[in-house]
Design a protein around this nucleic acid. Structure first.
Length: 314
DNA sequence: TTCCAGGGGTAGA
DNA sequence: TCTACCCATGGA
């Protein structure tokens, strides 16, 4: 049991499932208030519940419960108050997408040589945030900027969040109100958001004023195009980020075509030729509603850290 | 100094 | 619908 954590819970998930492959499925685990502990093989997060209470969650590989089910061990600090454990458990399942049925996607992967390793290593789930607000804000912080600076921006934003009791350096992701209170000067200069600060302020303002209901978006727009359209109507979110955030919200029928993924596609499938996004998309057309996920995880399999992991004896 | 990064907004055609 | 241009910032 990790130091400072109380024994809390075991969350079951159908196999194939691997915590590392899920937590490290894309860059989110490097963004505060997430932290990946490589030595412990555990994902930590400072989480502020809607009731305002703040906890540190730690998610580690759980005991093997059966041939059919894998599990994740959820540890929480401090000891949850009455009712909070139920909320924390629900949020943890959401972060790791433990309730998402990937059976069809995994069958598709097994039929395609380039994707066969995905179900074999228990991958296919993309780490997400507990709410839409956090995923959208982080999406804004990825635009037209290096990944290193995205990490710095999100770290600076998280410095605005509510701290864990007695630990001023361990803070939750800020609420829209906390972002608004920080003001334009902090966001633009100190946090280094530059021109993105005005998008973020406009977004936070409309959420606080009740003009935008972000958390309701996935329920109101059940098909991919409608959801991406709604996301694209948000300030600072264009087609690329909308496709990316839509994937995090569970719509995989479009490719997240940013400069890095497009570069990968050109190298991988077109000999480095300068093909457009539609041509890349055409290659994945047969994957239908799983198009975006298939593309993302084919890219993921080329990451050095993933290749090293795949090479390890199981 | 110039370019560019895990793009987006806007004006004009 | 498409294109050109601008947008803060910081590292290479």
């Amino acid at each position: 049991m990790p130091v400072g954590h109380e024994p809390a819970d075991v969350l079951e998930v159908p196999r194939p499932f691997d915590l590392w492959a899920t937590a490290r499925s894309h860059g989110w685990s490097s963004l505060a208030p997430y932290a990946w502990d490589e030595a412990a093989g555990a994902l930590a997060r400072i989480d502020r519940l809607p009731n305002g209470r703040v906890y540190r969650l730690q998610l580690a590989e759980g005991p093997s419960t059966s041939d059919r089910m894998a599990s994740v061990r959820l540890a929480v600090h401090p000891t949850p108050r009455a009712g909070d454990l139920t909320i924390l458990r629900r949020r943890a399942r959401r972060l790791l997408r433990l309730d998402e049925d990937l059976g069809e996607f995994h069958r598709l992967c097994r039929a395609e040589p380039a994707l066969r390793d995905i179900p074999r290593v228990g991958a296919g789930r993309m780490l997400r945030s507990p709410d839409v607000w956090e995923d959208v804000v982080k999406g804004i912080c990825t635009t037209n900027v290096t990944w290193r600076r995205t990490i710095a921006m999100v770290r600076a934003l998280t410095a605005l969040g509510t701290p864990l009791d007695g630990e001023s350096n361990a803070r939750a992701f800020p609420t829209p109100t906390q972002v608004l209170d920080a003001g334009s000067g902090y966001l633009t200069k100190s946090a280094g958001l530059g021109y993105r600060a005005s998008y973020l302020l406009e977004l936070a303002e409309s959420v606080v004023a009740g003009q935008r209901e972000l958390e309701d978006l996935p329920r109101r727009h059940r098909n991919g195009p409608a959801l991406r359209g709604a996301l694209q109507a948000l300030p600072g979110i264009g087609p690329v980020t909308a496709a990316y955030v839509a994937m995090l919200l569970g719509s995989y029928d479009e490719l997240p075509m940013d400069s890095s993924t497009l570069g990968f596609a050109r190298r991988q499938y077109f000999g480095g030729r300068d093909v457009d996004e539609a041509t890349v998309g055409w290659r994945f057309q047969s994957h239908g509603p799983w198009k975006g996920l298939a593309f993302w995880f084919e890219l993921w399999l080329t990451w050095e850290s993933v290749r090293e992991r795949l090479a390890e004896p199981s």
